Each structure stands twice: as structure tokens, then as C-alpha cells.
Simulated scan of single mutants.
Amino acid sequence: MDAALEQVGPRLRAARRARGWTLEVLAERSGTSASTISRLESGKRQASLELLLPLVRRLGIRIDDLLPGPPADPRVRRAPRRADGVLVAPLTLEDAPVQGFKLVLQPVAAPPEPRVHDGFEWVYVLSGRLRLELGGQEHLIEPGEAVEFDTRVPHAMSATAEGPAEVLSIFSPAGERMHTHGAG
């Protein structure tokens, strides 16, 4: 079956449930049997215009609402920005469930103040040396090494005084707000 047609049933079910209607309510209002609607929603009956028109009219939606739109452009076109002196280049779409960034941290003599927030963070060092202060202990992370930690533990990241560090960082939306928009 065509992938677009496979989505008709679940989208029909979602539209019905969004109105708080049972199968029986939609059946009564559309003049279609509850068993036919159930089979359409589960994909056990092929959708046709003859079956769908009375349903979409009663639901107040269009036939197009039951079909997926064209695939979105997968390219990430978000501009890099600076936050607390760190160059932040987004690697994921803005509405992605997890956020990925390439961070370029400049050398500093002392690490920033540790922060705490909800979530987990995963970091991979591309180049330079990363100073990770985690729970009061300092760790030097070399290129090719990765770390994972609970961000509810006080933590701070910076490049060592030797030079900049480039890292890939993946975290939840709470971590994204904390790390890429600055301390404010």
C-alpha cells in the first residue's frame, strides 16, 4: 500500500478523537456504519472518496488533511550564533526532539561557573582539549573521546588555555536553552 494512503486511517482516527467523538457518534452523524469507520481507521478497508466525503464533511476537515504533505527539506539552515563567547552552530532542525550543535569554545584561564538543569548531555571532542568540570572534579577530554552526564550534576565546559576546542554536543531542549542561549 502507498505510504500516503497508510496515513489516512490514523489521521481520520485522530480527527475523530480530537472532537471527542466515538465511532458510533461519527457513524450516526455521517450515515456510515461504525464498523466501516473502524476498518478505515485500522487500515483494513481501503479508503475511497465515496467513503471519506461524508466523514470529512461531518468532521469539518478536508480530504487533504488526511494525507501527508510533501516531505520537508531535511537540510538544517540555522545560522551559527555566539552565546557566552562560544560559537554555536546548530546541527538539527529547530523542532527536533533532541538538539545537536557544534560548539567552538575559546581558550580560557579558568572554567565558567558550573550550571545545573534538567536533562542529559552527550559531548564528542573533535579538536582541542575540553575541560569538563563535573560534580567538583575536573576532567580533560581529548579529541576522539566522548562523555555523557546527567546535567542535574553541576557542570561547566571550556577549552583549556592551550587553544580552542571544537565539540559536538547533543542534549534535550532544556539543555539547549541553557547552553546555546547564554546564562541569562
Rank of each mutant, 00 (worst) to 15 (best):
L132F: 03
V25K: 15
L12V: 12
R131I: 06
P164N: 10
A89K: 04
G9K: 08
V86M: 08
E162W: 06
T180R: 00
E121Q: 13
G69P: 14
E162C: 04
Q7C: 11
M157L: 08
V86T: 13
E176M: 11
K102A: 14
V125C: 09
T36R: 04
P111K: 02
V98W: 13
V56M: 10
L93H: 13
Q46V: 10
T151M: 09
S158N: 05
V167N: 07
L67G: 09
P114Y: 09
I141C: 04
D73Y: 09
G182K: 07
V56F: 08
V123N: 05
T92D: 02
L51V: 05
L59M: 12
A34C: 01
L59D: 13
T151D: 05
D65P: 01
R152H: 01
V123P: 00
L130G: 05
Q46N: 12
E166D: 03
E6T: 14
V56G: 07
G119D: 10
E94H: 07
K102W: 02
L26C: 02
L140K: 10
E41R: 06
E142Q: 12
Q106F: 04
R78Y: 04
R29V: 14
P70C: 07
G182N: 09
R17Q: 12
L87M: 07
A96V: 11
P97A: 09
E142M: 04
M178N: 09
R29E: 15
A14I: 07
A15R: 09
G135H: 07
E166F: 01
E28F: 04
L52M: 11
D118R: 15
S172Y: 12
R58H: 11
R16S: 10
E94I: 01
R75S: 06
R58A: 12
H179N: 15
G100K: 01
A146G: 08
V25E: 15
R177L: 10
V153S: 11
E24G: 10
R177A: 10
V8Q: 06
T151V: 08
